[in-house]
């Protein structure tokens, strides 16, 4: 027993080392994400400038020692807003991914396992949800439920679950035919236990890579929504919202558009690169 666990740990550590060696890109992406998260969440402790304090006399300043990245049209410090906005984007991205996975895996696994009428009804709902373009569905939902951060998280999660359900459904369809499932059933395992202990854990590899890619997609969606003015509302900072401000000043101060865009781009790039290398 002891030996078996040790062997298991060794195998896993070996797998990690091999992954690092064969996927330097994935490793770089993981390190990049850690840097972005640490910077955004610990940065404000060091850099104590308010992201919301306005100062009309200091509007649209170029970078200086007082404002390392300059100020926006309302005289707010851009670096401080970048950090605060990053917290919003990263939290929304991760939490809405969790929402999508919980609903998607549950629906997909149940539809794939129980088949019959349940499958028919659930998969039709998945199809219906997939037939509405994401942004349009989000717009409708935001009109109805408002745009506080928790609602945004829920709404983006609700847009992403059908894709997750499709993946889980496909996998469960093949897993349920395997011999050990039959063996567990023959041993008197209850259906719920079978799903929980024997089937859903098998989905982990594909869920992990899907999850990473979904965070990237969620961050893009949130920023797009805030850019349209339907997402995170001012004075709360968000990367998409900062770009919305930048668009109206594109002829006056084009540099406003640079930093929030770069941050979104880098974050999404890292999540995509990590997700792709995990998929392999």
């Amino acid at each position: 027993m002891q030996l078996a666990t040790e062997h298991g740990v060794m195998l896993r550590r070996d797998g990690l080392r091999r992954w690092v060696r064969h996927h330097p890109g994935g490793m770089a992406a993981a390190l990049g994400l850690i840097a972005i998260y640490l910077g955004v969440f610990l940065g404000p402790i060091v850099y104590r400038v308010s992201p919301t304090a306005t100062n009309p006399l200091a509007a649209l300043l170029p970078p200086s020692s007082a404002h390392p990245l300059g100020t926006d049209p309302l005289g707010r410090d851009i670096l401080a807003r970048l950090l605060a906005g990053g917290q919003v984007s990263l939290i929304v991205g991760v939490l809405s991914m969790v929402v999508a996975i919980v609903i998607g895996v549950l629906v997909g696994a149940i539809a794939g396992y129980f088949r019959g009428t349940v499958e028919m009804v659930l998969m039709r709902i998945v199809d219906a949800a997939l037939a509405i373009p994401a942004l349009i569905l989000i717009m409708v939902e935001v009109t109805t439920f408002g745009n506080s951060p928790p609602v945004i998280i829920l709404v983006i999660g609700l847009v992403n679950w059908p894709a997750m359900a499709r993946v889980a459904y496909g996998e469960v369809l093949s897993i349920r035919e395997r011999l050990y499932v039959e063996a567990a059933l023959a041993l008197g395992c209850s259906q719920w236990r079978l799903l929980r202990r024997h089937i859903v854990p098998q989905l982990t590899p594909s869920i992990v890579s899907m999850a990473t890619l979904t965070v990237a997609w969620s961050i893009l969606l949130e920023s797009a929504l805030s850019f349209l003015g339907l997402g995170i509302q001012p004075p709360l900072a968000s990367w998409g919202g900062m770009l919305q401000d930048a668009q109206s000043y594109v002829f006056i101060d084009p540099t406003l558009a640079v930093f929030p865009g770069i941050m979104i781009f880098l974050t999404v790039l890292c999540f995509n690169a990590l997700g792709n290398s995990l998929k392999e």
Binding site: L220, S223, F265, L269
Partner: peptide
């Protein structure tokens, strides 16, 4: 795959 389309549009 990673660039926000509206940012690219602004640029």
């Amino acid at each position: 795959l990673s660039v926000p389309d509206y940012w690219l549009a602004i640029l």
